[in-house]
Design a protein around this nucleic acid. Structure first.
Lengths: 359, 359
DNA sequence: ATTAGCACTATCAGCTGATGAGTGCTAATA
DNA sequence: TATTAGCACTCATCAGCTGATAGTGCTAAT
């Protein structure tokens, strides 16, 4: 049933006037959230067309698959195909108001402790608040993060705390069990050995190399090296599951805009399966810029009544993660798109600043 | 409007048969979630009382304030006062099934990384799942936590990472700005100085003492001491806001049991004000055991359609925090109470194990 | 090519009467 | 005297009907 629709095409040539009518219907539906009928459109368009003429045009648009009716005597509403047309052909990259820009910038700046986690959470919350939709953010994959510093702290004879700092300011803690009692001094030697060895390498590479070291001739190891490898192995076994931040779920239920959604329940349930949502969020075709998935363009069935607008964020060199919102298909694309875009940019910028404050 | 009702009293002496009827109504309403009428009660009670007699008794109970009617021709439902009677007089501390006990124990055990945060989150989720209500847990107050270890890690000339480990296994990270470039060696000296000085003291005491040191004659300080105090001050300025974990909010909306709730919206909104909820959760009169707040016994207005069942958890010496559920007043007290109780015990037990694995 | 006119249709709010579950009261009963 | 049967009464709910409204499609006139 759920065959994957990559993207709806809108190549067909539609004559100018018809386009204008279509645009009118789409924007009417976006603002009113009500099916739009020929009479009211005739007035609001101010093109001097009678309702009857509009009806003819509407009929054509229905045949072309741009419009549909919920029931015979209701006005028409745009199909996913219409929104795709609208986004591709009509929406121009318009500027955000200075006011809004400032608001985003300020919100991103604040938040005392300058750790990435906090930044991501507050940004996610911000975007959920601004759009009144659900906002999702994937945290940087630890896999590809670059090691800035690793440190071992002896907690007791059986427990060692690993502190792992990545270049972009993520800090991970993990308590590992010690197989023998190691002194703090010894642990310091191990950390500085690992720091020297793996400085500025990404965690994936590091893990690889440690595994290789382990199969090498064990005879050749001195105690330091042996322990370094052993501790390193445990330390870098960071949970592969990158985190996903979700904010604004309550909008799904309380926001008026979501009201003609079939199953907000289904969506809520989907959000429980974080890994699935992660994949969806991070699966990205184009390298940069905004990506928009309208209705059935979404692979996930419970998302097929919604539009997802997302953008990647990155530091100076790498793509780190994705931030996006999920809203009704008749969202106000004209403002949502630039808001997501700008937020992602600011996020990138802030993270870049943080990670460049290394030595 | 919202005058504080500490606790509804149930001193009145009610004759045995009347009590049984009341109990029947309460349990009937708990299981069916429908007002219970005289006829059906007459059958289910099997006391050989005719509906008419039951009606008379019901009428008395209404006068005493134990029952009310939503409308004339509907059956009766228990008042908050009735639930209070039920909880105090009727519900006996019954045992959980072995099966359920095992389930709680297992769920608490798992979860690889043995840090308190993860434990609290997974326990909160567990309890929300078991009860199908909303579950709240307050994390241990950092204020009163006992220092196990503090460590400074030089990230760059301007940034120092503070790692703070408490006795019960909480790890806090904080990046602080350095006023001058300090070597890692020097930082190590500072950490071990602070560790010596403050080992096994709670953070609140430590902060006090540092402040006192600062006002002492500064002339007498050598460089080490001066820096130790300065860094220590920043390091121990941990955010005072303890964390609050909330799980199962969707039950509020999707669970059948919450259906006769006036405003789930109001509750959802209340949950946004975490500090307020925190206070509510942590404000505790009695020292230990289960605490139950029924309907209007709750101070918070939006909670007055609900019952909150909570219990504190602790390590070997101190109360650490509170775990509780919020559900409809006609929840199944017979099982909810022991579930919360048992979960809190297991939580205490697990945390105690963790912190006793120090040297 | 456009439009006016008309028949058609679905939804919605408001009204109706029937039904049923429940009560309270009173008088009969054990 | 406590219990119960009987009866009148009260509401909430539901199905079915109503007219109003807002939309459409089609056809014939412009």
């Amino acid at each position: 049933m759920s065959k994957t629709v990559q993207r709806l095409e809108t190549k067909e040539s539609i004559d100018e006037r018809t386009q204008q009518v279509l645009r009118g219907i789409i924007e009417g539906y976006i603002t009113s959230n009500e099916p739009v009928g020929s009479r009211s459109l005739s007035k609001s368009l101010e093109m001097g067309l009678s309702p009857a003429t509009i009806r003819n045009i509407m009929s054509d648009l229905s045949d072309m698959g741009f419009l549909m009716q919920l029931h015979t005597s209701a006005g028409r509403i745009p199909t996913d195909k219409a929104y795709r047309f609208y986004v591709d052909q009509v929406v121009v990259a318009n500027q955000l108001t200075r006011k809004l820009q400032k608001r985003i910038q300020e919100a991103t700046q604040e938040g005392g402790t300058n750790q990435v986690e906090d930044l991501l959470i507050s940004t996610t919350r911000l975007l959920a608040g601004l759009t009144q939709f659900v906002c999702l953010t994937s945290s940087p994959r630890v896999e590809t993060s670059i090691l800035r510093r690793i440190e071992f702290i002896r907690l007791s004879s059986q427990q060692i705390l690993v502190v792992l700092v990545t270049r972009n300011g993520q800090v991970r803690n993990k308590i590992i069990a010690a197989t023998e009692d190691l002194s703090q001094d010894f642990l310091n030697t191990v950390s500085s050995f690992l720091n020297d060895q793996f400085h500025n390498r990404n965690l994936h590479e590091i893990r690889q190399q440690i595994l290789e070291s382990m199969v090498e001739d064990k005879e050749r190891y001195d105690r330091l090296l042996a322990q370094a490898v052993r501790l390193g192995k445990k330390a870098f076994e960071v949970e592969d599951a990158p985190e996903l931040y979700i904010e604004g779920q309550h909008n799904l239920i309380f926001s008026e805009r979501f009201r003609n959604l079939n199953s907000s329940r289904g969506l809520m349930d989907a959000f429980e399966h974080k890994s699935m949502i992660m994949n969806l969020l991070d699966s990205t075709v184009e390298a940069d810029g905004i990506q928009i998935f309208i209705g059935i363009e979404n692979e996930l069935e419970s998302l097929q009544d919604c539009t997802m607008v997302k953008a990647q964020y990155s530091d100076q060199s790498n793509v780190l993660g994705t931030i996006g919102v999920i809203g009704p298909t008749n969202m106000d694309y004209q403002t949502v798109i630039p808001v997501v875009d700008f937020t992602a940019r600011i996020l990138s910028q802030t993270i870049t600043q943080q990670s460049s404050s290394c030595d």
